[in-house]
């Protein structure tokens, strides 16, 4: 199913085909251990190079849509999960979690790169790819491990600044 809208002269298409949902199900299950059944009540749609999550039941026509749902996954090249998606999936994520503390998270948020050995009790084998950064047992966003086992934050700059201010008060 695909719905098309006009916004600022451009045609926007929301493509709700089941293939997109399968990609999401499989990716988050394989990489983060998210149960496939948890996607049953949601819709996944494609916009450009991104997959979005939504639960709305109707898409009225003739509306200038600015945004709908929650951005889940960039699918150009290797799939990349968004920080907001990993936060939303926090209760379901069981693997590839890098557990940080105040010091290591602060360094990552300031652009630092740390070896995986700095993160004890993490649930990852250090294999290259995207990981969920956790703090105090809660997923705070997306990170990445390079082939040499180096961890880097992928949390957007604005959100990273906000989180740094929060950490400074702890």
């Amino acid at each position: 199913m695909s719905k098309r809208f006009k916004y600022k002269g451009k045609v926007i298409s929301l493509d709700f085909s089941d293939n997109w949902k399968e990609i999401v199900k499989q990716y988050f299950h394989d990489r983060f251990g998210v149960p496939e059944s948890m996607w049953d009540q949601y819709k996944v749609f494609n916009r450009g190079d991104e997959l979005w999550l939504a639960s709305f039941s109707i898409v009225p026509s003739d509306l200038r849509i600015v945004k709908a749902g929650l951005r889940l996954l960039r699918i150009k090249g290797n799939p990349k999960p968004t920080t907001v998606a990993l936060q939303w999936l926090s209760p379901y994520i069981t693997k590839n979690v890098v557990n940080t503390n105040k010091e290591t998270l602060s360094k990552l948020l300031q652009g630092g790169i740390l070896h995986i050995s700095n993160f004890p009790e993490s649930t990852t084998d250090g294999e290259k790819g995207y990981v969920a950064l956790a703090f105090q047992g809660l997923i705070v966003g997306c990170g990445h491990i390079s082939s040499g086992g180096m961890v880097k934050s992928q949390i957007p700059a604005g959100k990273a600044r906000e989180l740094l201010e929060i950490l400074a008060r702890l």
């Binding site: 939504a54 003739d62 509306l63 849509i65 600015v66 709908a68 929650l70 907001v84």
Partner: peptide, 21 residues
């Protein structure tokens, strides 16, 4: 986004002339 709202579509129209939808 922050509140995890998934059932909402954000639109931009002058409310007085909101389309018949």
């Amino acid at each position: 986004h922050r509140m995890g709202v998934l059932n909402t579509i954000i639109t931009q129209h002058n409310g007085i002339m909101f389309p018949d939808s």
